[in-house]
């Protein structure tokens, strides 16, 4: 149940005249808390998927392409680093660095996304023959459910970063007031963190089923 838009709230909170006695610092505290509550909620979503995986698969797992897994995982971790750079740059008002780092993150994110869709899902058999279908058996079903839900989050993260990049270009943020970028950054790190749990659950734990 991703609501990426929610985290945009703060992007223009400064324009929010509603709060008679509300300053940016108060708004920021509320936004941060809201974001973390959202993460707690999402943890249960991903937890439910993990529970499903262990309930249905037990100590078995499908035979997935280990190479693909390793590569997309590394790409995603790398993107977390570039997003960190972007966030720090915004904090220091280095908007050129921010721009480059944001685009690096988006591209790495896209590579991860396409890696999953093309290879693990085998959506384009001309390029890569996938070995699972969602309707085949419990392995296909769970792999598609977990990677699908995660990919949805990656995609919304990319959209979010893109929106922030555009707003930054319009000089919307200052080093003091850049909650929108901060939100996009922690959201991105969170989505990465989830993958750190999903990756072993899908690729490493248990004996491969033939």
């Amino acid at each position: 149940m991703a609501v990426a838009t929610k985290s945009l709230h703060g992007a223009v909170a400064a324009h929010d005249d509603h709060a008679g006695h509300e300053d940016y610092a108060t708004r920021l505290r509320l936004n941060r808390l809201g974001m973390w509550l959202f993460f707690i909620s999402e943890a249960f979503l991903f937890g439910a998927l993990l529970a499903t995986r262990f309930y249905l698969w037990g100590d078995t797992r499908p035979e997935l392409d280990q190479m693909v897994g390793l590569i997309v995982t590394s790409v995603l971790l790398l993107s977390s680093a570039s997003m960190y750079v972007a966030d720090t740059a915004a904090e220091h008002g280095q908007w050129r660095v921010f721009s480059v780092a944001a685009w690096t993150t988006m591209i790495l994110g896209l590579v991860f996304f396409l890696g999953v869709v093309i290879f693990e899902w085998g959506l384009f058999p001309q390029i890569y023959e996938g070995h699972l279908t969602p309707w085949g058996d419990k392995y296909g079903a769970v792999v598609f459910a977990m990677t699908g839900m995660h990919a949805l989050h990656v995609l919304s993260g990319i959209v979010l970063i893109f929106i922030m990049w555009r707003l930054a270009r319009k000089k919307h943020f200052t080093p003091e007031k850049h909650w929108g970028i901060e939100a996009a950054a922690i959201y991105w790190h969170y989505v990465d963190l989830v993958w750190i749990f999903f990756y072993p659950a899908l690729y490493l734990i248990g004996t491969a089923h033939h």
Partner: peptide, 19 residues
């Protein structure tokens, strides 16, 4: 979140046959 994902999976099992 649990009922959300549960009902989603149910919907997908019905329309896509994911078991």
């Amino acid at each position: 979140q649990f009922i959300g994902i549960d009902f989603l999976m149910m919907s997908f099992e019905r329309s896509l046959g994911m078991p």
